[in-house]
Design a protein around this nucleic acid. Structure first.
Lengths: 158, 158
DNA sequence: CTGCCATGGTTGCTACTGCAACTGTTATGT
DNA sequence: ACATAACAGTTGCAGTAGCAACCATGGCAG
């Protein structure tokens, strides 16, 4: 089941497209592999989903923040953010406080428990990232980062 | 809504993690952007979903193939493949033929219509990829590819 | 040949996703 | 001041996902 190299018996056609060489596919696949690997860590350790992890990471990064800002910062649709916030609130990892001068807005902060979890998550993330870079090698990791940067700067939006 | 640079008012904490600098996040985001861009093309033009596109691309690449092989080649769960195959069959883009020596296996091929669609999809894909590489620049694209290769070779599976 | 395990593919169930529509609130134009 | 638009956040809904259980078939050991 190692896939790309597990080529079927029939021979490829000349003017066919090789999926395994198609850049968008390769990028999607690579991201998926990394994402899953890392997700396993925080899921097993803290029972978080991907949107919840991103939300928590964003709240921890800015001590006080609104839902809209979380979405903007973490590239998530507002419904995802809304549901993640509720889930985190239900666990008492965060609190909301309605802004008194503009009551549409809620300011979100970590609770004591939330801060504790966040600190652990940060260590987990840094460790995973370090291990990843080590696995890829300085060169490979550097190239990957440069390539991503190109996408970030040359292609603005989702 | 350009996000990463749309930083909230509060200042980051020193021992917080900067999500926008976290490699797994950046990779996931980059892949998402590209994936969505490309998906818009084949969705608008042929009404295909992402699993359907991958499935069709794989069938077209190998003229005759089984469902399991499709999954292995395109990194998709077998249920995704199963459902994509059914959808494509319903549109008469593919046919199934049960192997007579092992009746568990179905051999899948494109119909005339399917081949026509596939040819168009290949052009679409090549064009998009070329445009993407052009946008990223030879250097950026090369680095991205090298980085992805590092992941592919150093980290085997999903 | 017979019982048991493995394999190819499908389906039921539950969770997650995004879109659009909604509520409540603030900003704007006249 | 009042109608209308814009905005923050939530919810209903319809599609899509993955897991596990399933069916049918075939391989293999005794």
């Amino acid at each position: 089941m190692t896939l790309a190299q597990r080529s079927p018996t029939e021979k490829p056609d000349t003017d066919a497209l090789a999926l395994e060489g198609f850049l968008p596919y390769r990028l999607a696949r690579a991201a998926e592999i990394i994402s899953r690997q890392f997700a396993t860590l925080y899921r097993e350790r803290h029972g978080l989903t991907r949107p919840e992890w991103r939300t928590l990471a964003t709240i921890g990064q800015f001590k006080r923040i609104t839902a809209t800002e979380i979405g903007a910062h973490s590239s998530m649709h507002k419904t995802k953010v809304s549901r993640a916030i509720r889930a985190l609130e239900d666990r008492n990892w965060i609190t909301r406080e309605i802004d008194q001068t503009d009551r549409r807005i809620e300011h979100i902060e970590l609770t004591r428990e939330g801060r504790s979890r966040y600190r652990d998550l940060v260590v987990l993330a840094r460790t995973y990232e370090a291990r990843l870079i080590d696995t890829l090698g300085e060169t490979g990791a550097g190239q990957l980062e440069a390539g991503i940067s190109a996408i970030e700067t040359r292609i603005g939006e989702a």
